[in-house]
Every structure is written in C-alpha cells, then in structure tokens.
Design a protein around this nucleic acid. Structure first.
Length: 465
RNA sequence: GGCGGCUUAGCCAAGUGGUAAGGCAGAGGUCUGCAAAACCUUUAUUCUCCGGUUCGAAUCCGGAAGCCGCCUCCA
C-alpha cells in the first residue's frame, strides 16, 4: 500500500514520492507570536506533528521547518502599546508556544527560524525579483507584480479578474499598480517608530509572505517536498509564496501542499476576532488532561472541520482511559506460553492502521484498528488466554502506534504518602470485612483523584484523568 | 457576486455501487462484599429532503434545503 496525500495544488490524492529517496523536506507554517495561541492553531500544528510522525514511521528521514512570525502589524502595535521592543514583546509568546507544543506532546521540528533573523535572506530574494522585473518599487515599498506570473491563482483556484474588490480590500493603503499585487517590502513610516531594518532595498520591514519563501529555501532548498498550513493560508499566503519563490528561482517550489481544515467551536470558526476561542491554558486551568486534548484534536480527518465541544473532550478523555486501562492490564500478565491468536490480532491491527494512515492520514481508520485490537484482546484476557509473551507483543505494537499518535502512553504516576496510607488502611479494612470503612476510604481517595479497582490480582489504583 | 467544502444513531465518526466500521454516552445482564474495569445483549431496515440511473445507491446524476469556509490581518 502506498502513501497518498491530498494535494491542494491538484485537488487530488496523489502518491507521495519524495524528491530525494528516503528523505522528506517539509515546511509548516508556524505561529505569529503575538498572543496565546488557541486550540484551533494547535489543531493545525498537531496535524503537522501527525504528518511528521507518520512519515518517520514510514521510514523517511524528515527535515521539518516551522517558522515563527515575529514581525507583523499586530506585533508592532502590541509592542508599541506596551512600550517595549519587538523582541521583548514576542519572547514570552515564543516561550508559551514551545511550552504548549511540549504539553501536547508534539515532536520538535528540526528548525524554528524566526522572521526577524532572516531579513538578509528576504532582501536577497526581493532583489532578485526586482532584477527580473517581477517586482516594482513605489515610494520605498516593493510589490510583487502578479501579472508577471501567469500561474498565479493555480493553488487557490482564484481568478483574479473575478476577485471582488469590496469592503474587505482596504482602499489603497499603499499605492500599488494593481490591487492584487502584494507587498514584499514595506517602507518605513512614522507609525513604525524604531521598528525597521536598514537594507540595500531601503529602510523598512518585510511583507508577510516573503519570510516563508526565504526561510524555507534557506533550510530546505529551492525545491522541496511538502508545505502545510491551515486552509486560510491557501489564499493569499501560499499563493503568494509560490509566485515569489518560483519567479525568484525559476524552479518549481513545492510538490505537495497539504492544508488542515479549521476547528469550529459551537459550529463557528474559532478566531480571535470572534472572541469564541479557547487557549490551551484555558482548558488546562479547568483541569482537562492534555493528552485528551491531543486525542480530540487528532481524532478527525484533518481535511474535515472539527467542531470542538467540551462534551467531545469528555468523550476523548474516556476513550483514552479505555486505552490506558488496556495497557495497564497487559502489564500485569504473568502467564507462560504463547497464543498464536495474539500475533494474528496484532498483525491485522497493524495492517488496518497503516492502510488508514496511508490514505491521507485517515486517522479514524487507525483508531478503529486500535480499538478492534483492544476489544479482541480483552476477550482473550477475560478467558485468561494471553501470556506474558503475547502481552509484550501487543504492548510493543501499542508503542509502535504511539510513535505516530503520541497519546497512547500513560505517563508514570505515583501516590503520595497520604494516599499510600489510605490504600493500606482500606486493604486492612477489607481483610476485616469492614466494608463501610473500606468504602469510605475509597470515596475519600476518589475525591483526591484516585480510583481504586479491586481485582483478582489485588487492589489497583489509577489517577483520574 | 465569485470560488470551495460539509450534512450518516443522543454526541463524535468510518464508509465513493453490493446491502451501515470504530469511539463516547444510555439500557439490561455476567463478574464483584459493593463498586470499577472487562465481557455479553441492546441502541440507524437506514445515511438532510425530492426525483433519476442501476438487478442493486449513504455511495453515481439532477434538483431543493440547511450549515461552514475563502475572496488580500487570519491555523
């Protein structure tokens, strides 16, 4: 079975073949560091994490670049309001972003380049574009001339002639030859205060799109495999990247464009301007388990809108609990021997999982494969038909699935002294058949977030997630 | 106005021509001191609606309704 991805460029599923055998170079549009990212942002970043992990699972050596946009209008306004420098303003948000990625168990990308540290690279491309007459300068600002790139609109399927020039397009803030031309370089203006770069192409700051072209080329080369982002990036951002990159290099820029659909909250798009967004911190503060959030954000096919609800998060948490309980139980098996059925179940789960993920990361199929395995093995467990060897085989397979999904493993837990004492006291009460006391202690522990289960192999505890 | 997507059980969701995966929640049961977990049984004669094609349609075609998105800040 071959790996296929839906390519926005062709609007079709295509077999993924890397440019260089065994290696994948991918650029993932990262955050603009001006605020706490919301969980919709993280849906996209986790989709990118899943993509990265699955490519690695398939044996590719992955080089991922995720940029940090640390210069744009919002950042300038924000920093000026606070009267601090750009760096002072963005530093905490960069930190928060990395902390959040860590909380959500996203693997680190190989590179996290920052726009402000790549002005030189951007200037170089802009100069090239000026030289090739793909760009022009007006009053110190430099614009990309769309009419010089016939392929413009190919990615977004937009017809520029039909673009409605309406309320959304501000009456020319900057003078441009054509409204749809976009800024590569914005000339310094008084509003910018001390935020500017003195460069060969003048005093000013970069437009938004140029950073991604400059940084992707620097770390991945002029032509690479995959470029991803949220669907809202298709136009204009990615369209513009293609235009400026291909005009600068004369080469094809990217083979596969993958876009994650948006997360909705209450069936509405979550956006900062709507004020209906949850940040990761909001959810953590309310006591939600981080891996349940990861589970939920990754539980649906990335090209489909996902409606976020707390009810859904609760369901995600419960699903996760079932998975954890399953692994916990396997770890306690001591039975000798080997049951060929276990191996058969593992193989069929693996095949189904891979078939699903191979098909444009259809994670629902992958999850079904895992739950099928859990169900079938639980049946065997009930009949005491699983040996320690079998259990290990199954656990290894779960680990392998977890390399891709990143939420199947329960973190190590321990009980504090007080809890340990309570568990012991209850055990004593049970031996004395003092059920009233035993039940009272069990309830007390539950209130402390500890769940007790009396099994034939003794009392087990787990933390409430 | 232009362009794109979606609509499957209480909720989430797979399924692109062969008779509805999986998860959560609910109900009854087995087990248990009681619970929990697990297992068993149960939960859509039906896939937004109306037509059509076909031996056969959630899947293809036509139409209608509803929802969401993009159209130069946006994951």
């Amino acid at each position: 079975m071959s790996l296929v991805f839906f390519n926005t460029l062709t609007r079709q599923k295509e077999e993924f073949v890397p440019i260089e055998s065994g290696k994948v170079k991918m650029y993932t549009c990262g955050p603009t560091v001006y605020d706490y990212p919301h969980i919709g942002n993280y849906r996209t970043f986790l989709f990118e994490d899943l993509l990265r992990r699955y490519l690695k699972y398939k044996g590719f050596q992955v080089t991922q670049v995720m940029n940090l946009t640390d210069i744009d209008d919002k950042i300038i306004i924000g920093s000026q309001k606070k009267g601090i420098s750009l760096d002072e303003y963005t530093a905490p948000y960069k930190k928060i972003f990395f902390e959040d990625l860590n909380t959500l168990n996203a693997e680190a990308s190989e590179f996290y380049p920052e726009a402000t540290k790549h002005i030189k690279e951007m200037v170089k491309i802009i100069k090239k574009l000026l030289g090739k007459k793909h760009a022009y300068e007006i009053e110190g600002s430099i614009y990309f001339k769309i009419s010089t790139f016939p392929e413009y609109g190919k990615l977004s399927k937009m017809n520029l002639e039909e673009l409605k020039v309406g309320t959304r397009v501000k009456a020319d803030e900057y003078e441009k030859e054509q409204v749809s031309d976009f800024a590569l370089w914005k000339a310094w203006d008084e509003k910018d205060g001390d935020i500017f770069w003195e460069t060969e192409i003048g005093k000013g700051r970069p437009g938004w799109h140029i950073e991604c072209s400059a940084m992707s080329m620097k770390y991945l080369g002029e032509y690479f495999d995959i470029h991803t982002g949220g669907v809202d990036n298709i136009f204009p951002h990615h369209e513009n990247e293609i235009a400026q990159s291909q005009c600068a290099t004369g080469k094809k820029f990217v083979n596969f464009w993958l876009h994650a659909e948006h997360l909705l909250v209450d069936n509405k798009r979550m956006a900062k301007r709507y004020g209906n967004f949850y940040t990761l911190r909001d959810l953590l503060d309310k006591g939600w388990y981080p891996m349940a959030i990861r589970y939920l954000l990754l539980s649906t096919y990335y090209r489909q809108q996902l409606n976020f609800t707390l009810e859904g998060l609760e369901a995600a948490k419960n699903s996760l609990q079932r998975i954890f309980d399953f692994s916990d139980q396997l770890e306690t098996i001591e039975k000798e021997g080997k049951n060929p059925q276990a191996e058969r179940l593992v193989i069929s789960a693996k095949e189904k999982f891979e078939a699903g993920l191979d098909d444009d990361l259809n994670v629902s199929i992958g999850l079904a494969a895992i739950f099928d395995l859990i169900y079938e093995v639980n049946k065997l467990l009930r009949e005491n038909q699983v040996s320690k060897t079998d259990a290990q085989l199954i656990l290894n397979q779960m680990d392998s699935f977890d390399k891709v999904l990143g939420y199947l493993k329960k973190p190590e837990e321990s009980l504090d002294d007080k809890a340990v004492q309570l568990v012991e006291r209850r055990e004593k009460a049970r031996q004395d058949k003092d059920w009233q006391l035993a039940d009272k202690i069990r309830k007390q522990l539950l209130e402390m977030g500890i769940i007790l289960e009396d099994t034939s192999a003794g009392t087990k505890w787990k933390k409430k997630i």
